[in-house]
Design a protein around this nucleic acid. Structure first.
Lengths: 224, 224
DNA sequence: CTTGACACAGAACAGGCGTTCGGTTATCAT
DNA sequence: ATGATAACCGAACGCCTGTTCTGTGTCAAG
């Protein structure tokens, strides 16, 4: 027998959901029950409340009862935590890495990238992260392309197996490699398993500038 | 002793700012004026209002007057729009790509990745994006490592220069390559410029499964 | 026909909350 | 000292808003 649409969400539920989303985008905060009623042609606040309860039961909405406009869409990732990482400049072989000063304010940077904290490995949630645009093909042995964005964490040393940005002052070269300490020095291992490591003796200069915590590549450009 | 500092923000301003941020994280919505007062040892709502006005003048806060809890920090992820992309499974050579059904609901996926829309290339903001975990080293010629996450947009064809996920049924192989149409067939160009392209004749089967819009690599694992 | 659920309206209530206004105290330049 | 100003208090006002209660009409099952 046909049950009167008592199960699932109907057209009106969807309309309310859509309105909440669009209202949130426009006003930066959720609508009130009465505002929902007006825009969804519901004349009674109790009916809106009635629908809101159902949406909550369907797990499409969260409500903070008693709190004005205390509702949020569960899916629409209302305000998922994200980090705003300042882009300090470019990284390329032959040039030192621009490192942010300790008193640098990330919010004054003109260029930033937003990273969801849920994507951040481990607990690198520190606010001192910074990003660099990769310029040139010099990092291809680190499996990093021209145009990629690398997210770095400032560091002066590293543990085995971490990818670090190092400055080899005698070679005048910046490079990204996996870092391993060995008895007679350091081994800088390219990410590309087909390539050979660079061995650095303890006597040679090696400056670790930071650890690579993430690489992001946007595919939008043409390649010959 | 009250410290008189009429310009800039003082300790109390900072305390209010911090409280708003932590309250927002915990409750998913901003605090009321009275709640701010309680946690910052301000006994009068008018004083909180007084500070809020100053913070607004300093452009550290936005307010919707008259609206309950109508305040938000300007820096703290202003309008953190992000997409929740479902992870459909793994991609590896020798296995077809799991493609979401058209009626697939991304929100029921147990595994998702969050991407800031500000990171999304062009206007791929469509909700039909999906993600795959790369398994194995078979994509290294596409500059993609074991463990990477690729964000794909479903597609059956592509324009020149776009990176696509293709299924070569005769070779029983899935691969990621830059796509070029040529007179006698297709050229599949590896991202790694040191590697040679694969030429596919028109007579040979070639199924485009999607376009790669982004690659994300988290650095946390050890590599031998 | 009766019953009961479902969908909805309308009004009233009560508490939450921003606003405002009259005062008070402390600091500082004049 | 003295007026100006910043910092602060307390209370009252009144709108905003979620809640709740009573009532109506519809439709399907018994």
């Amino acid at each position: 027998m046909m049950v009167r649409k008592s199960k699932g969400i109907g057209e009106r539920h969807q309309k309310i959901l859509d309105f909440i989303a669009s209202y949130q985008r426009e006003h930066k905060h959720p609508p009130s029950i009465r505002e929902i009623g007006e825009h969804c042609d519901i004349s009674s606040t109790s009916v809106v409340n009635y629908y809101l309860d159902q949406l909550e039961k369907e797990n499409l909405l969260e409500r903070d009862r008693k709190i004005s406009r205390g509702m949020r869409l569960v899916n629409n990732s209302p305000l998922g935590d994200m980090l705003r990482v300042p882009v300090m400049g470019v990284i390329q072989a032959g040039e030192p890495i621009p490192i942010p000063a300790s008193d640098f304010n990330p919010f004054t940077a003109e260029d930033t990238v937003d990273i969801a904290t849920s994507l951040m490995p481990s607990k690198e949630k520190g606010k001192d992260l910074f990003a660099l645009h990769v310029q040139g093909d010099s990092m291809i042995d680190a499996m990093i392309n021209d145009g990629d964005i690398v997210i770095l964490k400032p560091a002066q040393d590293a543990r085995n197996g971490e990818m670090v940005a190092v400055w080899l002052s005698d070679k005048n070269e910046t490079t990204l490699k996996y870092f391993y300490k060995e008895k007679d020095g350091y081994r800088l291992q390219p990410a590309n398993p087909t390539m050979k490591p660079i061995m650095v003796k303890k006597s040679e200069p090696l400056e670790i500038k930071g650890k690579v915590v993430m690489v992001i590549r946007k595919m939008e450009r043409m390649v010959a």
